[in-house]
Amino acid sequence: MTDVKNLEELFQAKIDAEQKIEPKDWMPDEYRKTLVRQISQHAHSEVVGMLPEGNWITRAPSLKRKAILLAKVQDEAGHGLYLYSASETLGTSREKTIDDLLSGKAKYSSIFNYPTLTWADIGAIGWLVDGAAIMNQVMLCRTSYGPYARAMVRICKEESFHQRQGYEIMAVLAQGTPEQKEMAQDALNRWWWPSLMMFGPNDADSPHSQQSMTWKIKRQSNDELRQIFIDRTVQQAEVIGLSVPDPLLKWNEERGHYDFGPIDWDEFWNVVKGNGPCNKERLDARNKAHAEGQWVRDAAVAHAAKRAKRKEAA
């Protein structure tokens, strides 16, 4: 036991000294478990996140927007892949990780269980959802686990255009015809609160958070990040003439931040538990793609084996 205790102290000392933890280093089981859970959830979010936006690729209203959206959704696939890679360094196979998603055991960001109803939703997702995600991701570039941090650096570099393209879509709509402006405002109304929920429960109700902060997996609390996001986004909405759907939103001179209304956590937990508007559709789509891809993956393996055998024989 003293050994493990020593190892834990050494481990924490490394973290306190801002040294990255690498795959072969000793780490507490709980640290590994937390990472596997968090990284795979993050990966699943990227991959499931392709669906609500992907279904607008064929309907994008200009060829320029279509190319941007294709590139963006493809990036999400890439980011999912970087993250699955990072989680594989912890000794869990991608297959196992994906099985957990497909069976509904693993979670992904609840935001993707909301439907994309109009073109403006593509703008709102880029601006708000990617905007919220990137705050988290910038923080994670300094996370203590090396492969995760490196994946995040790559992701942040690539994501920088995602939020801007979304904001641009909204700006163009807001300055367009009255119908377009209405479409943009409606999208903001629907995506605002779910975006705030993306930062997770309030700090007081977030039991794992403290340990994650000590291990420097997380480096800023949910509430801190949420507040920064609100402060920035409210200003951005003003610039393009849209209004944030929160009657209690008010600048607080003393705090130097916006005060905002209460978040409906019942809705949040309800969606987490599987009762969001699109939970079933999202999982069904992933399961369908996986099942229909089985023969494709098998064919590639069979062919590779045949070729290897022939090479050996030659």
Partner: peptide
Amino acid sequence: SEWCGHGPIL
């Protein structure tokens, strides 16, 4: 582009 998000493997 209809395949995007539905491919046989990532």
